[in-house]
């Protein structure tokens, strides 16, 4: 099958690649664009490890064809922070032991980022419900929830200080 010329914005950068329409977005990100933050856990739309932020929505990139993402604005964990300048969520996952093996973490943090954009001051219940598309086999979720609550508090304090 003929390849398509795809353009998308990933982490603020315009990117172009050739891909078959049937290629999954997660494969194009990881294998063609070398963006390996989003992981492949199940490849069947269940685990959330492949979660990216696409046009302001948390999306499982294993359930999107690359062709559908043509023209999209995508943010992955790489776009949220880096080792020298961690995002508050990354800081808080570290601080509160919100990860063990770390496999689910890029998806968790990318989803939590969008959740906090929509609900800046969530209750624990709202965090648990809002994170219910992401599975973790290690932590038992307790510390993931704590880390997200702490990040919300931190982000709100920074916002207030700036006002």
């Amino acid at each position: 099958m003929e390849k398509m010329h795809l353009k998308m914005t990933v982490n603020g950068e315009e990117m172009e690649t050739l891909a078959e329409p049937r290629e999954l977005l997660i494969h194009v990100l990881r294998e063609r664009l070398n963006i390996t933050g989003p992981h492949i856990g199940c490849e069947t739309s269940h685990c959330g490890a492949c979660t990216i932020d696409m046009d302001g929505k948390s999306v499982k990139s294993c359930t999107v064809f690359a062709a559908q993402a043509g023209g999209a604005d995508i943010t992955t964990i790489e776009g949220l922070g880096n080792p020298d300048n961690l995002h508050v969520l990354q800081e808080m996952f570290k601080e509160h032991h919100g990860l063990q093996c770390g496999f689910c973490t890029p998806g968790m943090i990318t989803r939590a980022y969008r959740l906090l954009q929509e609900i800046p001051d969530p209750t624990e219940e709202e965090v648990r419900f809002g994170m219910s598309g992401n599975l973790c086999r290690c932590t038992g979720y307790q510390n993931i929830v704590k880390a997200i609550m702490a990040a919300a508090t931190e982000m709100n304090a920074t916002k207030e200080a700036a006002q």
Binding site: K57, S58, V59
Partner: peptide
């Protein structure tokens, strides 16, 4: 229905 990610799309 489903989970947050699925409901967005």
């Amino acid at each position: 229905i489903a989970d947050p990610q699925v409901r967005y799309v």
